[in-house]
Design a protein around this nucleic acid. Structure first.
Lengths: 218, 218
DNA sequence: ATCTGAGTTATTGTATACAAAACATTTGAC
DNA sequence: GTCAAATGTTTTGTATACAATAACTCAGAT
């Protein structure tokens, strides 16, 4: 049961949904797209199922596959859950993190700082991601780390937009320091709270962004 | 894209895995089982993919589908995450729960009490589940509630065994009371801690040991 | 005797053909 | 003119046929 084709197709469709080529509600025509990808309907349908699982596509029985972007409410819910996931990772990591991982965190944070000073949001994004993923891993719970990474990935396109907002990076750095502090002290509650706040703010910022977009559209 | 057949098949296979007819590592032969279910390989393979996504089956490219039960470590990880999910639900529900839902919780808890006194673990199980699902819902976050229900469902077979092992229903009732108390007071932290403890009770210390061992091995 | 390798078999992955259901269009009645 | 029914078309769901790859077997060499 080789999923390579289906995987490649699923990723490509995902890409097209993220960059807006496929809009919310668009129907994904099996025959047309399968032909476009140069495969038959069978593997293409596998890709659709995969996308349905990750929530990007809705499969309506006997009707077809439709692009399904999360609405504002669902998105806010997901950001809230993301904040809580990260908080849980932090809570566990505070008790389990290794010295080596702490050093890695410091390194990632230092590179974040450099990126802030260089006004380089792209490399900030990369290093910030590394920072967070170390914490996921150091939760010592592989299942949690995987779930958290999955949700992180799903929110990635939305997060990226809001990162560009003004003055966010500097504030983020302070929050990182608080997180590092709590982890070094092994203070679970402080680590959880710091991470929750850090990520929740992104959600709020995102909400503001949404609101402005919506106002502009009306 | 009607999933009814595939759904029915997936559920049946799931049942067979849970009740032990299919053991860990067993290969699920496409042609033999598809024939047994009276369908062709196409819908049967859809069912396999579905099972793979819920983690019960591993799809090895060009090798086939294999039953994959979580091992002890993964199981402990999942229980730990379950405890944290419930804690998050409690944290949010403490601020958002309605009076009506609180009344429902009291009702479920009363019925739990009756079940304890009647030494009726089956109806205790049912009412306890209702108790917890109310909290998921009252988190006010549909995404979180769904994720929590999914994990709950996945752990169900293991939880059931465990419940029977010890006569910890009475202890459980005390914990329920603490949870209710915190929710009524709107105390997020207390609700989260009570729920985490309630669900996590099983071998948390053992897991800490496991996690450190695992980290040390890496 | 064991290991290697070619040929065979079995099984997965993919394409296509067919069936059934939903959708659209046209025709007919009121 | 509008609504409705019926037929035709499109599209999904399923079965089957075909291709590709991995597993197995058995013969032969070291």
């Amino acid at each position: 049961m080789d999923k390579r084709r289906a995987d490649i197709i699923a990723e490509e469709i995902e890409e097209r949904i993220f960059d807006g080529r496929y809009q919310n509600g668009d129907r994904l025509d099996e025959v047309r797209l399968a032909e476009q990808f140069g495969v038959s309907r069978t593997p293409f349908r596998e890709a659709l199922q995969r996308l349905a699982r990750s929530g990007l596509v809705e499969l309506v029985p006997r009707r077809g596959a439709f692009v399904r972007q999360p609405g504002p409410v669902e998105l806010m819910e997901m950001f809230e859950v993301m904040a809580e996931f990260e908080a849980v990772c932090g809570r566990l990591a505070a008790k389990r993190i290794s010295d080596e991982a702490l050093a890695d965190l410091h390194d990632a944070n230092d590179k974040c700082q450099i990126a802030v000073e260089a006004l380089d949001p792209d490399s900030y994004y990369v290093e910030n991601e590394r920072f967070h993923k170390i914490i996921y891993r150091e939760s010592g719970n592989g299942f949690l780390a995987t779930e958290t990474r999955n949700l992180h990935r799903r929110l990635q396109p939305f997060r990226r937009q809001q990162l560009r907002l003004r003055g966010r990076m500097a504030q983020s750095m302070e929050e990182h320091r608080a997180i590092l502090d709590a982890l070094e002290k092994g203070d679970s509650e402080a680590a959880a709270n710091a991470l929750r706040g850090h990520v929740a703010i992104q959600g709020e910022k995102f909400y503001n962004l949404l609101a402005t977009l919506k106002n502009a559209a009306e």
